[in-house]
Write a protein that binds this DNA or RNA. Structure first.
Lengths: 253, 253
DNA sequence: CACAACAATTCTGCTAACAATCTTTTCGAC
DNA sequence: GTCGAAAAGATTGTTAGCAGAATTGTTGTG
């Protein structure tokens, strides 16, 4: 169903209630699905801090880990480079990409603009079943937050936004939103999953559902625009050095 | 200098006064430069209608044409797929991507939003030498338009926008603009190069320079927002069928 | 003649080995 | 001991060939 921009981001593996990858499951896939699955597995490693910024990604090691050929793993790394999660330097390899504070703020600023625009274009009113779908995802998200299930939180959060913006008639706009959301995973890291932040996200999602229910577009636009504000404040400056490919010279971890 | 989003779009090959590619020149390149050069050569073929929508791109033929290995050509095709200029289907190959009228309108709508936002964030006033740089590019663009040099028109038009938005402090925003601009090359095709349209572009560029010179931000934002409007009207509906991968079943050209 | 099964062809996907490059270590001169 | 050059090691980049999928062409049967 990918009709406008680049490769599909709507892979079945992105279902919010899908369990973590297991090696045997990955090994049963082929072709594009395999590449996508590995890219997403690595993406989760980055999101949850199992792979840290500037950490090297050795093709041979990773292909051994996933039990795939290096060829496939290279493709996954290329995909992650396009998504901005990985930085590749010729003849030197790949590292988890590190964003400076300025870059994070820039990306978030663009996200605010395009998400507000999407809210402006959303087809209102929603059908009752569409509202119900949003509520169901959000209940799952809230529950995941209760029990501290970071992976479920992460995925159901994505699902919420996907479900909401799927009602935006401009697919090109939605794909820009998805692209930027995925880029933001590079600096989302586990540190932003503080209780205080999680509560804000939940409240904000329920407020969005409420605005949708009452077809209050003005409020919806404001909510979508301001939704990212605290994320930016939670960004840790612990890796606040500027990007530098020469970082590859020193190995780590 | 690519610091925020995906691969660099600011390749030296994109200089506006650079002559057309010649095979021997391409053959002298290596690595990333080679991939980028081939991708850009194919991009120009698409822009100028030498490659038409739905036309098949056979890896072996093209690699023979450019005198490179199939491996390199595959990389170029992958790049063009990310940019939305080419559509690839597993085990079937690549075709020049065809956008529906709706998709074109959607992309243009997003471009208007992000370019207006960039205008809003532009650092004003410009230094005199920055204004001079814009004027120089635009004089080149106008001259190219006079003599009907489509390639020079195309490239200097890109250079104008790059030069203008290089003063936007938000690099992530500029990269979204560049990405969408490059996508639009898929439907730019030679048909939009009508005298009437070319004149509009030139007038609009001089108006932008004028607004920059007087640091009139409000007018600048309006100009950037409305700058794409006629392009959309010029889009020919001659290929107005919806996208369909099964189009690969029937060969053409 | 229509149609289905099968065969041949075309083209892409993938593998494994090799080459090129960068990094680290070693060794010797000062 | 320090510096620099050269060798060794680690890692990525590239090549050629084969495997596999999709398409096209052909043949045989009703």
């Amino acid at each position: 169903m990918d009709t406008t921009l680049n490769r599909s981001h709507d892979h079945p593996l992105y279902q919010y209630d899908k369990p973590a990858y297991r090696e045997e499951e990955i090994r049963s896939l082929r072709g594009d699905d395999l590449r996508v699955a590995i890219a997403e597995a690595l993406e989760e490693d980055i999101v949850f801090g199992r792979l840290l910024p500037k950490e090297r990604l050795i093709e041979e090691d990773l292909s051994a880990r996933f039990g795939v050929k290096r060829y496939v793993l290279r493709q996954a790394l290329e995909e992650l480079e396009w998504l901005g999660l990985v930085q590749r330097v010729r003849n030197r390899g790949s590292v988890v990409r590190l964003y400076s504070v300025k870059e994070v703020e820039d990306i978030n600023a663009v996200r605010e603009v395009v998400e507000a625009e999407a809210a402006r274009q959303l087809k209102l009113p929603f059908a009752p079943e569409d509202i119900a779908a949003l509520e169901k995802i959000q209940e799952y998200h809230s529950a995941a937050s209760e029990r501290g299930d970071l992976r479920a939180i992460f995925r159901s959060n994505i699902a919420f936004h996907k479900s909401l913006f799927s009602h935006c008639p401009n697919k090109a706009l939605v794909e820009v939103i998805d692209l930027l959301a995925r880029k933001s995973h590079a600096y989302r890291s586990i540190f932003t999953n503080k209780a205080e932040y999680l509560r804000w996200v939940i409240d904000s999602h329920w407020a969005i559902i409420d605005a949708v229910r009452s077809s209050d577009r003005e409020r919806l636009v404001l909510l979508c625009r301001s939704h990212l504000a605290p994320a930016k404040n939670h960004y840790i400056e612990m890796y606040s050095t500027p990007n530098d490919p020469s970082a590859l010279r020193t190995s780590q971890s």
